[in-house]
Amino acid sequence: MNRRLNPVIVFCASCAATAWVWNQFGTDAKSLPTDRLKSSATGNRAISEDIHSVLRDLGSAETSEAKLKSARRLDQVSVDQIRSGLEETPLVDEGQLSLVAKLFLIRWAGEDGEAAMNWAWKNLRSKGVWKSAYREIIAAWAWSQPTKLCEWAKRAARNNKPVLGEVSLADAEKSDHPLLDFDGLNDVSQCLVSVAPREAYEVFLIRGGLSSDDSKLTRSLQSVSAVQEALLAFDGLENLQPDRWSGSGIYANSLFHRWQDLDPDDFKRSRFAHLLPDRSPLESASRPEGPRGWISEFYEWTSFHPSAPPDMKDWSPEKTEAWKDYEAWRN
């Protein structure tokens, strides 16, 4: 007999014998109350009772604290029982994804985001609450397994090209796997950016296009190292040229600006410094003289004094003429 197996067999045999003895004493060795919730032997009836009890408490909770207290009790349903828990839970409450469903999905996604996502797609896509479930899942998933979420989002986008608007219900019902739209990929980037900047931007590059939320994504990067990590998602940064921003270079440009905002001196020392104009305080002092400097002077003046003309009495006729031309052009 394998020597390594012996202790296991002896242990199990001892357990069985001891349990039998205890049983003879009429103790009816059932599991602990906490274990009861985790034991599949007790079946769905127990889960159902427990969930309904939490639901009642959540429904009657008047304060956030009471809600949170009730919500915590759902924690005792083990992850492998969440699926049956969800099946017994009212998923929609007044047209919204119910709090209980959200809490279950959050826990599930923390363990296995893809399983939670597939369940939600199958069961919620026709109920008008898919987006809400999706956001809860990706937030929890990004937190626990950012790389897996990133890979999943890229795979999902590769398999079905994300649509620009909203996915239609008809298309959704035809698909067994979640269909992502532009906003869906955007949401993934936003969730990932604080925990995994590189992954966030990998998804962002797949998303492409422009959104009013893009600046929010860049602003979420709170340190130069986070910006540098986000830049790792880009290929061909060495080929970028100043004033020639196109394609993904536009996104890289916004990251360079963020870098410059966070630490101008650090950016100045980087090998990307040539891509953006210097922001040092000497900038205005180094304005070129003559006609090429007049335009900077014009823009500075008009932005600080939008309706007041400058004092032109000591100006050369050429400068006065140029100023009037700029005024006609800008007005």
Binding site: T27, L32, R73
Partner: peptide, 28 residues
């Protein structure tokens, strides 16, 4: 094995006796 089984069983007996009338979901 003997100790573990006994401990679990005894604990279950004790807890169950205290649990009567209490919400079964109260965290232990």
């Amino acid at each position: 094995g003997v100790a573990a089984t006994s401990l679990v069983t005894a604990a279950a007996m004790t807890i169950r006796s205290k649990e009567v009338g209490q919400d079964s979901l109260q965290p232990l």
